[in-house]
Design a protein around this nucleic acid. Structure first.
Lengths: 349, 349
DNA sequence: CTGAAAGCGCTTACAG
DNA sequence: CTGAAAGCGCTTACAG
């Protein structure tokens, strides 16, 4: 009769199936206490009416949105983009949606209000990708009263997943040491603006420690701070390689993108890679193959899956939110792996 | 009295301010017909109570979610990631949120259900970035009954914004012709799997037409199909440059990433760029500077802003959704611009 | 196994 | 300018 009166609601289905809305709700959500016949009929009717429950009404009634807020400093860089992609995939498989918060070009201070107002009552949980936070920001996050897991660094005493940055850097250095290198440079120390970020510091510190432990010289002028872009790394490498006096025979970079920059610098200076200069990165960026870059691969998918699992676990264990049991190990580490390509070689005697 | 009884609701504010919830609603949303004093008081009380309206309740009551679904084939590639970022920024400035749908690694057929179930009643509008759609998918999108604007290609007779792919390709070719090149190759024709996508075809066709129009030879064996990755382009360039017989003196690539691949191939073959080979791309990718790549820049931010403006316009004009007035020009084109760097040079006589 | 009813937290005519 | 009340479309005890 009433064919076209807008999208159908649960009431339409109930009426057409000759049952109550409560029964429709139960039947469609697969709850128990519904007779097989009823369930079958409700399903059929719902199908015919192209019924899909209104997520908005469901959220209001149930108190859960089935949406997870994903916060990234910038989606336009490879690590973040692929992490967002992988997290979205994992979330979707569990019937959750991604509300994306890209802080790119946001003024630092404004993130506060942003976080609170925009996530407030909107999401069941939050995944924060490599975003260092001030105490105030952390407090605001807490005020959301939803589980939070961070990826790529630790936030407070919350759950987190990431690679072991120190181990990754050690792996890179160890590879060079095995090839006989002793004069090793490092590009990718933290610059001030990212001072809150652990990753640059951890990788650099571990690289230096590994060199020192092997008795290799650690020269301060060979350890360079970078903004982590390829171009900046190219400039730094230029300077490092043309400074006069000794040169390193190998350079470890905190990320593949910086390694690309070093690679280009070497070429511009007419140095052959790896014969005259070995280069190692960290990441295994999609373009690493193009540069034949030896690198320490990090498993994005693995990290994303773990992060989603952790978050959904906490979602289930909800109610006692806020009272994290720190004793359980909620800081997961996903293994990295050395990928040897053509940018490293044994040192020439 | 009742300090900690969970986040405050509109009722709490009304009670504390001594007015009705209707008045709170009006006051806080800046509607007219509220006395300045009342408004002021409500605002103050709301502030004290840290009140933020529940988006979920607002949506159910108002019928608008203030969420826009953004669909991309893969977020992990530069063009898409930066487009998502820019769109998110533009949307946020207008108080809309982004629900991200990343189709990466989804089976083509499954996108259908996905689209319907996940966007259904969830979003006020949709922005689709470069996703070719089958008639069935288009129909499903229509069934959502919300405005849709596409970026990077046309969808049906809906609104869209993008660059003029043909013009971009012509610009690239014209630049080479001016430098005296006549033996020009092209990498980036469409491969079968992306057959539905206009961009590769438009760029290639326009490039070829421009060459032909200038009386330059168009050799089928110099026009290569690619999957648009850097590595594939490298392989193709290798073959093209080592095929024996004549070689092109310049290569136009459908994207910067492919140009990177060609650049590396040239180097591997010991050809100097640009002296022995000129290379032009399209995009102005963040790494273009690293490769000193001459390219045709596309304005991501500009396109994103236009797309958001178009969409929000249609949102306002809603009610008559479905009856698009095709007469208005709803296909916006954002200008491109030649950026000359070091990968192109006048041909040697 | 099923239904009636309250409730989720807002917005929106409708009165006044 | 302001309030009482209905309504948005579900879920969830509570009865039966």
């Amino acid at each position: 009769m009433e064919e076209r009166s807008g999208p159908s609601t649960i009431v339409d289905v109930a009426r057409a199936a000759g049952v109550s809305v409560a029964t429709v709700s139960r039947a469609l959500r697969g709850l128990d206490r519904v007779s097989p016949d009823t369930r079958e009929k409700v399903r059929r009717v719902a199908d015919e009416l192209h019924y899909v429950a209104s997520p908005t009404a469901t959220s209001l009634a149930s108190g859960r949105t089935r949406i997870v807020g994903v916060i990234v400093p910038f989606v336009s860089r490879w690590y973040f983009a692929s992490m967002v992609s992988a997290i979205g995939k994992a979330l979707r498989e569990r019937d959750y949606q991604v509300l994306l918060f890209d802080l790119e070009q946001e003024v630092f201070g404004e993130r506060l209000t942003l976080t609170r107002t925009m996530l407030w009552k909107r999401v069941d949980g939050v995944i924060s990708i490599n975003i260092p936070m001030s105490p105030e920001e952390l407090e605001l996050l807490s005020g959301l009263h939803v589980p939070v897991v961070s990826v790529g660094h630790h936030l407070d005493d919350r759950s987190s997943v990431g690679i072991d940055d120190s181990a990754a850097a050690r792996t890179a250095v160890a590879h060079l040491l095995e090839l006989g290198h002793r004069d090793i440079g490092y590009i990718g120390a933290a610059i001030e603006s990212s001072a809150l970020n652990e990753t640059p510091r951890s990788r650099m510190a571990a690289a230096i420690a590994a060199m020192a432990a092997a008795g290799a010289p650690v020269r301060p002028e060979w350890v360079l701070s970078s903004d982590w872009t390829a171009e900046n790394a190219r400039d730094l490498a230029h300077r490092l390689l043309t400074a006069g006096g000794d040169r390193p025979t190998a350079i470890v970079c905190g990320s593949d993108e910086m390694a690309f920059g070093v690679h280009v610098a070497a070429q511009e200076l007419g140095m052959r890679v790896p014969v005259e200069l070995s280069i190692v990165g960290i990441d295994d960026h999609p373009l690493a193959g193009l540069f034949s870059l030896t690198t320490v691969r990090q498993d994005i998918r693995g990290q994303a899956d773990q992060a989603v699992t952790l978050l959904l676990d906490e979602l289930v264990t909800a109610g006692n939110v806020g009272s994290h049991s720190i004793d359980e190990d909620r800081r997961l580490t996903v293994a990295t792996e050395l990928v040897v390509r053509g940018s490293t070689a044994a040192i020439r005697r």
